[in-house]
């Protein structure tokens, strides 16, 4: 499929104040076209107020299988959570 146009990932901000969320991808010749296609396909029912398109090849991703060696979930460090600290009831809403 080498004749395919470049792949773009599409991110949409559903409402002001919220982060852009990944919604899918599409092929396009250039970024401007990708933006128009994204509008045509992904925002047909007022899904958003702002669209980002990014070349899929520009996305660098970690692999879930590498979790353990790449980033330790630190389950052995419960003191990083607020609930670790037992406080008297009267002030426990801290």
């Amino acid at each position: 499929m080498s004749e395919h146009m470049k792949l773009y990932e599409v991110f949409i901000r559903s409402r002001r104040g919220l982060d852009h969320k990944h919604v899918g991808s599409l092929h396009a010749e250039d970024p401007a076209q990708a933006l128009e296609y994204a509008r045509d396909v992904y925002t047909r029912r007022s899904e958003g107020v702002s669209i980002w398109v990014v070349n899929s090849s520009d996305i660098v991703a970690s692999q879930e299988g590498d979790c353990e060696s790449f980033y330790d979930p630190l389950d052995d460090k419960p003191y990083r959570h607020a609930t670790h600290y037992q406080l008297p009831d009267e002030v426990n809403n801290m």
Binding site: G17, Y79, A82, H84, Y85, L87, M94
Partner: peptide
């Protein structure tokens, strides 16, 4: 300002442990 507000949400989530550990030291 959106990015500032979202940064604050992230920070507040982590900050509660900070105050509680400090209070725990004082207690």
């Amino acid at each position: 300002y959106g990015p500032y507000a979202r940064g604050m949400v992230r920070i507040c989530k982590e900050e509660s442990f900070h105050q509680r550990q400090g209070y725990h030291i004082m207690m």
